[in-house]
Design a protein around this nucleic acid. Sequence first.
RNA 1: CGGGGUGUAGCGCAGUUGGCUAGCGCGCCACGUUCGGGACGUGGAGGCCGUGUGUUCGAGUCACAUCACCCCGACCA
Length: 490
Amino acid sequence: MAKEVTTKEENYSLWYNNLVIKADLAENSAVRGCMVIKPYGYAIWEKMQAALDKMFKDTGHVNAYFPLFIPKSFLSKEAEHVEGFAKECAVVTHHRLMNSPDGKGVVVDPSAKLEEELVVRPTSETIIWNTYKNWITSYRDLPILCNQWANVVRWEMRTRLFLRTAEFLWQEGHTAHATRQEAVEETERMVNVYARFAREWMALPVLVGSKTASERFAGAIDTRCIEAMMQDGKALQAGTSHFLGQNFAKAFEVQFAGKDGKLDYVWATSWGVSTRLIGALIMAHSDNNGLVLPPKLAPIQVVMVPIFKGEEELAMMREHLSKIKVELEAKGISVKIDDRDNLRSGFKFAEWELKGVPVRIAVGPRDMQNGTLEIARRDTLEKQTIAVEGIATHVEELLNAIQDNIYGKALAFRDTHMYKVDSYEEFKTRIEEGGFFLCHWDGTPETEALIKEETKATIRCILTDETPEPGKCMVTGQPSAQRVVFARSY
RNA sequence: CGGGGUGUAGCGCAGUUGGCUAGCGCGCCACGUUCGGGACGUGGAGGCCGUGUGUUCGAGUCACAUCACCCCGACCA
């Protein structure tokens, strides 16, 4: 077992890992590289799902479901696509087991070999485009705006809870359009949906930009992404939206008749975010006391801890707190009364802080007398004693304030760790401390690869909402149209 | 897949040059005292020492193999 590490200064990775486990979010499973998401962690995912799903519906999308298994031949139809995913595919080769001849357990029945192997989906473009082919004949069938909530498998060498597991949960949108313009707009629309979700729900400031050719999704013409900064200054790709051009339509022969009767290939996009977002949430906001969850995504927004002696006081407290709970719930606030009688209040405080509950209310006999309660906020750890009267409104406002404060803090952190650097020498030393570096790059994959080789930094994205500032590449001195964002990443 | 590390009770760990009945802390159960920031006392339950094969009179301890996990790389969302 690894040494117990409790502060992020000691070893950020270990701190993160311990935090995930101790806060009851997830644990490693018996299956290599896969995780068990525990109820508390899953509840966060459910909140994310609900919010995202609504945003997708609001932008005209519908949900559907496609098979888990992809015939191997489908995957290889788009050359770049298979090139990108071939190295990390789990493959089903047989469909039956039999009793082992030596009487010990079961073995794979060799007579049950599949004629064509099935790949467990690493992403669903191929199986979906093979299906869309049957759905599309005319421009009247377009656009198709489908989303799928599913699990996918990518057999990664090295895994980490939430950030990179062999199996993960995600949503993948797959859209089909009659025109290039429409597909490009869709790509843009969805990356902006992700950016808005990150900012408004996760309290996570993200950069929106495009990937360079070498960082692009396998099979895409353009990959738009959101990039977030973690507290160790490393970047985390939090969501992607791909403009796929006609690549998949051509690979799967999906053509439609336009108004003019002429056949053309369909234009495509795909976009997705995964349970990695939970990892982002943890790494972006948490402190050494544990998780800090933004109120909008916290499964429990308010925890109430009674302070009492004996059965009688506890009963009284339960009644008192239940009334407050009803008041809060009327405002749509989720509340938990921690009335366990085997633990002291101090222990409970620490435990709920570890779990990131945004607001804690403590009530003791003293408060009962005075008509007050103690209210503590997780983000700043500040406590104050206030009147019970008007508590619901107060909490409602406090939750909003916490949501804003967490965002503000993350934004301030990112802004103070984003630097414009023009000298490659300076870049090489400062990249060690982490952060985002806005630098000039000559636009060639060679220079990009060289920088990665020498500094482990990659181009996270080419910003779109910046007014371009021309300059000279920090490595080659060649002209550069604009600065791009370099960082080390997860 | 390369380098390093770890597998002993639910969790964190000790276990000496092989030695007979495998320990400690936390947690758990019972009772009592406590209860406004991680309480304390007394008693109790809980172990195929990751798995397999060797070496040996004897293996948690030694050898080999294997599996899993963690950290650092390479690969990736």
